[in-house]
Design a binder for these strands. Structure first.
Length: 873
RNA sequence: GGGCGGAUAGCUCAGUGGUAGAGCACCUGCCUUACAAGCAGGGGGUCACAGGUUCGAACCCUGUUUCGCCCA
């Protein structure tokens, strides 16, 4: 077989992805009584472009999916995209604006049609990118949150919640984005500390008898003040409660009220109350039946209620109000203050709390079972610590504002009579008022995008219909996502899933961290510190990207990307490729059946021991979502054990009579190594597995390897380790005296006893081969020790490299002395430990035995060193 | 203010009661025909600090410092 010495991922990856897809491997195998394994992919935004965070998450999921598929479980991974309401609308609006078109001119229907056109054209991009990663998703089950079926689920949920009294409509204060022109939920607001000015303003008492000073960071809202509040127990103000003050500039007489919300230690201990523009003031307003006067409008400008200030932006109004207050001598003080300011998650403008008519979900009744599910362990977070974060949030949850004043999304299924105002919430369109037969119009608002995402685990499987998919694959097994959307998404899926299906939507919540740059900064467009995964794939291949993302990643931990990591990944892909290329160059292609007789050759038994252990480690790690550990285990096995030792040791047998047996084991172990590696690096492993004469049509559907104890031997493993130590010792000596690796050199080794000699002798061909040791003389202690040599200590004996005429006796003596000092120091430590009665008494027997063995070896080494020193001439 | 996480080799990070690890970087020698995207060898760490528990602590507990995140 002709193979290039360099692995070229580009020629391999697309080919295999297409074949897998055509052959239907991504679809779940037919039903059986076996438990199924299923994941619904977190739907990326249709506007999205793949970034490293997606790549990491997709890789993790694909690893799990491929692993479970190889375990022969019916396995399903559902792909899809999210319509991403505000986000997509903004994007298309921007596009239209560049063409000089405003959406309001177009009208709703034309605009929505435009967004659909955009979606059809670009919405599939991110899916193609996910395919490039090798994601083995079932494309036949591709879903979109605005699909007909999913929209039906959304309507059904809305109507049912409404009927159950868990959805209501009303005038409440909500977070309003003046730029996006819509209400937002609490979690869509990002609070950031900013330095503002705390202005203390004097409000004269109506009695003319003095004044009350209040402090505020938003003087412009004073125009809408309808009270001043103090703490009921504050002795400074107790006598004023119930009195009236005059709001400056507007001259409005408002009461002084008592409310425990007021913090007596903040500012003057008295606060102005603006129910229309502050959530806490709104609450106080409700408690005290205060009027609500909106002085700031939905466009962020002052309303008619603001009188002379009407039409000014809120920022300009702040300046003017301050000027006017100063002119009247009412400003007592101004001092800088750090305080949290809310910003729109999407557009970053400062959020304006406003009172408006919105739809809300009453969350608490839904939250309770969702809390319970995590408490009882029915749903588990990985890593566990996020359960606390989830609980904390859920136990303090607020009602959820779900209406958005935009056009792209699921329209609220509420209809209003244009004549009598009657409202109907309905699964189907209502055109005629059931009360007065007047014309009905649907609510213009759409639902929060997360409302539909919350249904994703069951809506994608066909709910509300009782489909086979639901029966078979719901609850899903794992939900893998970033810890940053636990509140937005995970909590809501749990609530809705349990409420509507009676079952948890998933068993495990697997959380990955943020992907950051090498300096630990978040990736952002403005910093330009991100990297396009496609660029990495083009440069190094998807396999390299995947293994680099997984090596050293752990649930919940942030990941720092760097080109070096990707490069290391591509080196490994190349290593794997070349190892198999070596096997293929030697192998004539003859069938090597899986029931090939067990080899009793120690090196073969050793590699099987290593392989079996690796299988156990990887399997256990994957079962516990320890991707980094699993990847490390196969990486180390492949590179260190299989390549650096097994292949190298096997080369000598490939030249001799034992060639067939060596090859058979090379191939069999190689196949299994590829299988273990397949979930991590699907493409290169398939390419090579096919070349190695597969037992199955594809590695993807081959059976996950099980340890084969009959092929391993603990004794052989120990013997090979003894020889490895021998080889390392000699290599060390050779390096020290600068003997070129390919230069032949005589080696004389003296074993302490017959057992050691036997082990060495048994593997003499490998020793000779790997060390270029010629002649290799193995003997037992007692004969004539060679002179004029340099020596090294190894387990059970001493090795000599004779250097007739080249040995500097003085230098060698120094070297030996240093070595001996080191060994003595170590023996001292080990002896001290063994002299401790408590250690002997309390440490596990195995540890004690190991320590004793170690002391014996150290004793032996010191003996050998002394003997050598004595004979050095 | 409350909570969470990190602090381990020059850099990025694994490890998690029993002799400190990897990748990259560095030094030395090698194109030893699978791989120079490689091989062999090497240097480099009071595992943030202080106490405690333990026969034994990088690992468990307490506190401190410091960086970061989330919530209010």
């Amino acid at each position: 077989m002709e193979l290039s010495p360099r692995y070229n991922p580009a020629t391999v990856e697309d080919k295999w992805y297409q074949i897998w897809r055509e052959r239907g491997y991504f679809r779940p195998r037919p039903r059986s009584d076996q438990p199924t394994f299923s994941i619904v992919m977190p739907p990326p935004n249709v506007t999205g472009v793949l970034h490293l965070g997606h790549a990491l998450n997709t890789t993790w999921q694909d690893i799990l999916i491929r692993y479970h598929r190889m375990r022969q479980e019916p396995t399903l991974w559902v792909p899809g995209t999210d319509h991403a309401g505000i986000h997509t609308q903004m994007k298309v609006e921007e596009l239209l604006r560049s063409r000089g078109v405003d959406r309001r001119q177009m009208g709703r229907d034309a605009f929505v049609a435009e967004v659909w056109r955009w979606k059809e054209q670009y919405g599939g991009r991110i899916l193609e990118q996910i395919a490039k990663l090798g994601a083995s998703v079932d494309w036949d089950r591709l879903r979109f949150t605005l699909d007909e079926g999913l929209s039906r689920a959304v309507t059904e949920v809305f109507v049912r919640l409404y009927e159950e009294g868990l959805i209501y409509r009303g005038h409440y204060i909500t977070n309003w984005c003046v730029t996006c022109g819509t209400a937002l939920s609490d979690i869509e607001v990002e609070h950031r500390d900013e330095t503002g000015t705390l202005t203390s303003i004097r409000y004269p008492l109506a009695s003319g008898d003095g004044a009350v000073v209040v402090a505020t960071t938003r003087p412009e809202t004073l125009l809408g003040d309808t009270a001043v509040a103090v703490h009921p127990d504050d002795p400074r103000y107790r006598h004023l409660i119930g009195q009236t003050v005059i709001v400056p500039l507007v001259g409005r007489a408002v009461p002084i009220i008592a409310d425990t919300y007021v913090d007596p230690d903040f500012g003057s201990g008295a606060v102005k109350v603006t129910p229309a523009h502050d959530p806490n003031d709104f609450q106080m307003g409700q408690r005290h039946q205060l009027p609500t006067i909106a002085v700031i409008g939905e466009d962020g400008r002052m309303t008619a209620e603001a009188g002379a200030y009407q039409g000014l932006t809120r920022e300009a109004a702040r300046v003017r109000v301050l000027e006017d207050l100063k002119a009247e001598g009412l400003v007592v003080s101004e001092e800088p203050i750090d305080h949290a300011v809310g910003h729109c998650e999407k557009c970053d403008s400062v959020i304006e709390p406003l009172v408006s008519l919105q739809w809300f979900v009453k969350v608490q009744p839904l939250a309770e079972p969702a809390i319970e599910a995590v408490k009882t362990g029915a749903v588990r977070f990985v890593p566990e610590r996020f359960e606390k974060i989830y609980m904390n949030w859920m136990e303090n949850i607020h009602d959820w504002c779900i209406s958005r004043q935009i056009w792209w999304g699921h329209r609220i299924p509420a209809y209003y009579c244009q004549v009598c105002g009657n409202m109907v919430v309905s699964r189907t369109a209502v055109t005629e008022c059931p009360v007065c037969q007047g014309p009905m119009e649907q609510d213009p608002d759409v639902l929060d995008t997360w409302f539909s995402s919350a249904l994703w685990p069951f809506s994608t499987l066909g709910w509300p219909d009782a489909t086979d998919d639901l029966r078979e694959f719901y609850p899903t097994s794992v939900l893998s996502t970033g810890y940053d959307i636990i509140f937005f998404w995970v909590s809501r899926m749990l609530m809705q899933g349990i409420h509507f299906t009676g079952q948890k939507p998933f068993t495990t919540v697997l959380l990955h961290g943020l992907v950051r740059d090498a300096q630990g900064r978040k990736m952002s467009k403005s910093l330009g510190n991100g990297v396009d995964p496609l660029e990495v794939i083009n440069k190094y291949g998807a396999d390299a990207l995947r293994i680099a993302l997984v090596l050293g990643s752990a649930p919940g931990n942030d990941y720092r990307w760097s080109w070096e990591r990707f490069e290391a990944g591509s080196h490994f892909a190349n290593k794997v490729y070349n190892a198999m290329r070596f096997v293929l160059m030697n192998w004539d292609g003859a069938h090597i059946p899986e029931n090939t007789p067990v080899s009793n050759y120690p090196v073969d038994q050793w590699i099987w021991s290593r392989l079996n252990k690796t299988i156990r480690v990887i399997t256990d790690a994957l079962d516990h979502f320890e991707f980094g550990l699993a990847a490390k285990a196969i990486y180390d096995f492949f590179w260190d054990d299989y390549c650096d030792w097994y292949i190298e040791m096997t080369k000598v047998r490939l030249k001799g009579a034992d060639r067939e047996r060596a090859l058979a084991n090379l191939v069999m172990v190689g196949r299994r190594a590829l299988q273990l590696l397949h979930p991590f690096m699907p493409f290169v492993t398939e390419e090579l597995y096919q070349a190695l004469g597969p037992q199955e049509e594809s590695i993807m559907i081959s059976e996950w390897p099980a340890p084969q104890r009959e092929r391993e031997s603990q004794e052989a493993a120990r013997d090979v380790e003894t020889v490895q130590a021998f080889i390392r010792t000699v290599r060390n000596l050779r390096a020290e005296i600068r003997i070129a690796p390919q230069a032949q050199v005589p080696v004389v080794a003296i074993a302490d006893d017959r057992d050691v000699l036997q082990v060495w002798t048994m593997l003499a061909p490998e020793i000779e081969w790997l060390l270029k040791a010629k002649p290799l003389t193995l003997m037992q202690k007692g004969g004539d020790a060679p002179t004029r040599t340099i020596v090294g200590m190894t387990n059970g004996g001493v090795v000599h490299i004779p250097l007739e005429g080249l040995v500097d006796v003085e230098k060698e003596r120094e070297r030996l002395a240093a070595l001996k000092a080191e060994t003595l120091a170590e023996r001292q430590r080990v002896r001290a430990r063994l002299a401790d009665a408590k250690f002997l008494q309390r440490a596990p027997e195995a540890v004690v035995l190991e320590t004793q063995k170690r002391l014996e070896e150290l004793d032996a080494r010191i003996r050998r060193l002394s003997e050598r020193e004595a004979t050095l001439t």
